[in-house]
Amino acid sequence: MTANKILNSLYKVTKQVIKGLTLKERAEAVAKLCVEELNLKLCWIGKKQKDGSVSVFVQYPPEHPYPGKIKVRWDESEYGSGPTGKAIRFKTYQVLQDIESSQYKLWLSTAKKYGFKSSASFPIIADGEVFGALNLYANKKNFFNSKIIEAFVSFSEILGIAFRNALFFEQSIDRLNKITALRNIDLSIISSFDIRVIYDVFINAAVNLLNIDAVSILIFDEATQELYFKVKEAY
């Protein structure tokens, strides 16, 4: 694959990443275009979890069974010894030009079923924090030449910034929804002495703006207690 082909492909991916507003939309665009533009067999983005595990955030093709059949971690356990775990833990890319190596022994038999011959994992980092890793699989050995690696190192840096911005956007919307919900409850308390009206506003705000399940409200779990006492105090 020529350098121009690689750059043109990643340019297309970058344009799609910038277009998306949500983190999920951006991640899905990346996975799809990496496979379609670079003739890869599979791309999945793993999300770093606090317990040391790596979850599948998005993948393309969406129906490919491989990500769901493997266990991956980023800690120092044996399941953290593969490319994905090391990319996240050491914050640097990991490339296996031939997956038939000791580093890939835990996943080798499964990977061979789907025709994988080489793989690469690039950490997604923003402001020093690792979100996860971009994982790529090809049906050829030595697929990830120096040009591809260099391009994806730069691309993963752009990806980190794009993901950070999308995450900030989602967090801002979430905070705005919470403020709006509490403001609506306050206004209902001020403007009405009918407890039924206040209760209706409370239910609507909790379910539609705070994303609390209606069942949780009925059983009065911890997720609703704080909001309840806010209403009670104001009332």
Rank of each mutant, 00 (worst) to 15 (best):
L7W: 10
S9P: 02
V13T: 14
V17M: 14
V17S: 10
V17L: 15
K19P: 05
K24M: 11
E28K: 14
V30P: 01
A31M: 05
L33W: 01
C34K: 01
V35M: 03
L40K: 03
L42Q: 06
K47E: 15
K48Y: 01
Q49Y: 01
Q49H: 11
V54Y: 04
S55C: 06
F57T: 00
P61L: 09
H64P: 03
H64N: 14
P67E: 07
P67G: 04
K71T: 15
K71S: 12
V72Y: 02
R73L: 09
E76P: 08
S77W: 09
E78W: 07
G80K: 07
S81C: 07
G82K: 01
P83R: 02
K86T: 09
F90G: 00
K91F: 00
I99R: 02
E100V: 10
Q103D: 14
L106H: 14
W107G: 05
K113I: 08
K117F: 00
K117V: 02
S119V: 10
A126M: 05
A126Q: 04
F131A: 02
G132C: 03
G132D: 05
K140H: 11
F144W: 04
I149R: 00
A151R: 04
S154R: 13
G160C: 07
G160L: 02
N165V: 10
F169G: 04
S172G: 11
I173K: 12
L176Y: 11
L176I: 13
N177F: 04
I179H: 09
T180I: 11
T180N: 09
R183E: 12
D186V: 12
D186C: 08
S188K: 12
I190W: 07
S191G: 09
I195W: 06
I198C: 05
F202G: 05
N208G: 01
N208S: 09
L209Q: 01
I212S: 01
I212C: 00
D213I: 06
A214R: 13
A214T: 10
I217M: 12
L218C: 06
L218S: 13
L218F: 13
F220I: 14
E222H: 08
A223W: 07
E226H: 08
E226R: 08
K232E: 10
